[in-house]
């Protein structure tokens, strides 16, 4: 089995993912403190171990299937546009990072702006206006409609 069939690598990365999840569950369970309140055969560790078992079993079956070359038809497009992908996920994560300082209006607006750009829009001014309207609109809608104050961040006192 030296020459990998096309797609076998992606199949084995699925297996890796499942093994990682199963392993995580086992590790988390084994490092948990002992439970003295347990009644009967089912304690807080039982379900995690059961689910870990299911995941590892699935991983084993998938390995066998992959090595036998049996794989279900799936919708994998080979050419993935990782740049756009990264830009979108990056925009969300950036929002998570800066929101505590910048507040919702700036962080959310920035995220929208970056996402619109990533998805291919090049109307810079129009996009900026849309982002500002969305961010400010949601802020005031939450405040006046529901009394929820989304963090204003550095705009505290301005909004």
């Amino acid at each position: 089995m030296n020459r990998a069939r096309p797609g076998i690598r992606s199949d084995l990365s699925v297996v890796l993912l499942l093994v990682a999840f199963g392993g995580l569950l086992v590790w988390d369970t084994l490092t948990a403190p002992a439970d003295d309140m347990r009644r009967g055969p089912v304690g807080p560790q039982t379900m995690p171990l059961l689910v870990a078992g299911v995941l590892l079993l699935c991983a084993a079956v998938l390995t066998v299937e992959a090595l036998r070359g049996r794989r279900p038809r799936e919708s994998d497009v080979d050419a993935t546009d990782w740049r756009t992908w990264t830009a979108v996920i990056g925009a969300i994560l950036l929002c998570a990072v800066v929101i505590d300082v910048a507040g919702w209006v700036l962080a959310g607006g920035l995220m929208f702006y970056l996402c619109v750009y990533a998805f291919g829009s090049r109307h810079y001014v129009r996009d900026l206006v849309v982002a500002a309207v969305l961010a400010l609109g949601s802020f005031y809608l939450f405040y006046s409609g529901l009394g929820i104050e989304l963090p204003a961040g550095i705009l505290q006192g301005v909004l």
Binding site: Y140, E149, A152, G157, V158, L159
Partner: peptide, 8 residues
């Protein structure tokens, strides 16, 4: 009327 909600 909704503006200035976070003002001091």
């Amino acid at each position: 009327s909704a503006c200035g909600v976070t003002a001091q």
